[in-house]
Amino acid sequence: MHGTHTILSKTRLSEEVYRIEVLAPLVAQQRKAGQFVIVMYDEDYSERIPLTIADADPAKGSVTLIFQTVGASTHKLALKEPGDAIVLLGPLGNPTHIERFGWAVCVGGGIGLAPLYPIVKALKEAGNRVTVISGARTKDLLIMQDELAAIADEHIVVTDDGSFGRKALVTEPLKELCSMTPKPDIAVTIGPPIMMKFCAATTKPFGVKTLASLNTIMIDGTGMCGGCRVSIGGKTKFVCVDGPEFDAHLVDWDGMLMRLGTYKEMEKEAHDRCHLEMQIEKLETQGDSAPPAAQESSK
């Protein structure tokens, strides 16, 4: 049986953010901006983790994924090293609809900057003027900055704490751009759901068409489970086969945020346990035996 893919390289971009390059020639060849993959750190017990494709190199046959260690599963993925095999399925979802809109504003928040990059690139290649707004909680979490700066016509950087760029939320410069004449022809937003919700609320009064790329809870990524369902303009849609991009003004953001919290408590518990296990492992590799109490609770 075949079907696992080898990690070619791994880079730690910041405290919590990793970039891995995975050998997957068919996916690299087939993928388009806006699509995602599902990865598993092993074939037996791993959760299926949807990750948006940050970049691909068809000549080399590789795809690049960037992820933040937000829970137990992404932590375990981060422990994989070059040469290790992981499960990777894709490319999934519909590609971003790319055309010559005119002026496009692309807003990325935190880890969302990674999947924003291929969209910026595709919009640019289609002949658009592209303004990028990069936002993050703090300077350390700003990623893909060189890549984005190299292709964007304008690049605005904001951080919540002012550690880099403007001290502001992404919605502030977004509102300024929307107030201009002529206003942007299209806006694209990828990032934390709450950020996308407020981006949608910002562009709506100006009538700027806005696309948001949703990352909901998902199992198979092929339409089979319906766990990713979200209400779009009052109709239930599946993010995996109908999305992942939707008209941000039609998304039921509160409903989506609510569903994202389904396993919050269990995820927190698993995350804590994972940290404990990692600590134990560290102690063990240092030659110390783990304290009995900690061993007990790792079961």
């Binding site: 339409g223 489970c225 319906g226 369902r229 979200v230 409903g255 919290g261």
Partner: peptide, 25 residues
């Protein structure tokens, strides 16, 4: 493989699952 829902109000509340999702998990 594409689950049917009842199409009744409240079906997207947390705790409503397709059998496919529940059983696959």
């Amino acid at each position: 493989g594409l689950p049917k829902f009842m199409e009744i109000p409240g079906e997207n509340y947390v705790g409503v699952f397709s059998a496919n999702e529940y059983l696959t998990r």
